[in-house]
Design a protein around this nucleic acid. Structure first.
Lengths: 103, 103
DNA sequence: AAGTTATGTGACCCGAAGGTCACATGTCAA
DNA sequence: TTGACATGTGACCTTCGGGTCACATAACTT
């Protein structure tokens, strides 16, 4: 599950699904500079990690983002008390900068 | 930074630091079934990822957990609206189970 | 100064993961 | 049913990352 997040291509796939859910394999493939097979492998990893959930419809396979595992990562190393400090800090930072691009 | 979380040994190191901060290399080494060199490599990766912050004191090097990058992962794929749903869901789950061990 | 302790560096080995391809199955449409 | 489309499988290659070791520097102790 952590290994699933280790690859930049897979993170980009999550970004795509975060922007718009329910896309199919070929739809996602068109956004990447890679063979269909590569994308398929990555989606499989994400699926096995529980980060992506799948719904079949005929010959098509639609992919959806699952936020739960991400939250579990968060909760593993940030307790309720620290969370308040960190969110406050980051909210302040975003307030000061007002433009943000990550990674 | 995501690759830093991909390795189970490094996650265990974060767990150790989450339990108690400021430990030194040899202290952490004693908790693992590995050579000092292996642990050193892992700590270096965690440090470069910003997940661990370091304070030198003489010949000793103390390691501290930094929660900010973890929170950034969270914020990347969970918006404020979804966050409420997910936390509510997980709080409910923890309430029902009442015993929890992860990974 | 000398020995011990804490940490650092470079090279090396090996298994795992990313990527592609030939080939294959299942499904829609005419 | 025939062809086109969407997805799946296994083998293969190559690069990368985890782990160890020989060797090295720096600091505390007596």
């Amino acid at each position: 599950m952590f290994k699933a997040l280790a690859d930049p291509t897979r993170r980009f796939l999550l970004d795509l699904l975060f922007a718009r859910d329910g896309r199919t394999l070929t739809e996602l493939e068109s956004e990447l500079e890679m063979t269909r097979f590569g994308v398929m492998k990555h989606l499989r990893v994400l699926e096995e990690a529980g980060l992506v959930v799948v719904r079949r419809s005929g010959r098509e396979k639609h992919h959806f983002l699952n936020p739960v595992p991400i939250r579990l990562i968060h909760d593993r190393w940030i307790d309720k008390y620290t969370e308040r400090q960190v969110t406050a800090l980051l909210d302040l930072k975003n307030e000061l900068e007002k433009d943000h691009d990550r990674d």
